[in-house]
Computed example of a mutant assay.
Amino acid sequence: MRVVIAEDNPLLRDGIVLLLGEHDIEVTAAVADADGLLDAVAAHRPDAAVVDVRMPPSHTDEGLRAALTIRSAYPEIGVLVFSQWVETSYARRLLSEHTGHVGYLLKDRIVSTGDFVEALRRVADGGTALDPEVVRQLLAAPAMDAGLTRLSAREREILALLAEGRSNLAIADALHLAERSVEKHVTAVFTKLDLPQARTDHRRVLAVLRYLRS
């Protein structure tokens, strides 16, 4: 797997480079600003980009704006936002404009380097990886649509865990349920959201996006 890193803190940037190298992930470029990120992505066409939110020159939203540009120009490249802050408006756009290949993790909540690497691989492979706090803020006081109002409390709980990128087995472990029970709940979610099975659509991602857009 080939990765580009955009992080203005040199210690953290070098640390991520070393960490990924230990897991046989090639870092093709490590840059300190959004312009460098866009140039590196265009030059190397990596499998994924790890992007900080606040970078030079204004240290506001340069990283997220660059992430949106990458998502638009190169939808096949995974984008993992790695930040101290949750910018909900940008997060919604990242998640709504294309399905899959996206993640948003918070720096101060990463407790395992293995979890970070696993999330990066998932995003590069076309999945999603969202910190639970990001999900919580995105779902705060949503305006529900008709399909979502049909969900039970348990189904909503499972849909929130789907938004974090968890598998059925991981959800079963988190909620102390049988995996078969989780499968039935997930199927019920798809039914209530009117998401029929189709070869061209990823129903798990579509269900999560429906939830986040509401």
Rank of each mutant, 00 (worst) to 15 (best):
G126F: 05
R93S: 14
Y90V: 03
L106S: 07
R2L: 14
E133Y: 14
R154E: 12
V53A: 08
L80Q: 00
L120R: 05
R166P: 06
A40D: 00
P75Q: 07
R93K: 11
E97S: 14
Y211T: 08
R156K: 15
D131I: 11
D145K: 13
P46C: 00
R180T: 15
R136G: 15
L206T: 15
A124T: 04
L139K: 09
E183S: 12
L19F: 06
A143P: 07
P56A: 01
L139A: 09
G127R: 04
R71S: 07
I25E: 03
A66K: 01
D52P: 05
R45H: 15
V102L: 04
G36N: 02
H44R: 11
R204E: 09
V208K: 08
D131F: 05
L20D: 00
E62L: 02
S96K: 06
L19C: 07
A40I: 01
L11P: 11
P132C: 03
H23Y: 10
A143D: 13
I110P: 02
E164I: 03
P142K: 08
G103C: 10
L19A: 09
R109E: 09
E97K: 00
L120Q: 09
P57R: 02
H185P: 00
V81A: 01
H185S: 04
R65M: 14
G36Y: 08
R109G: 08
Y74W: 15
V102H: 10
E7D: 09
L38T: 03
I158Q: 05
S112C: 09
E7G: 04
M55I: 07
S83N: 01
L120V: 03
S89R: 07
Y211S: 11
D52Q: 08
E118N: 15
V86S: 07
L68G: 07
L159W: 00
R204A: 14
R203E: 05
D14P: 05
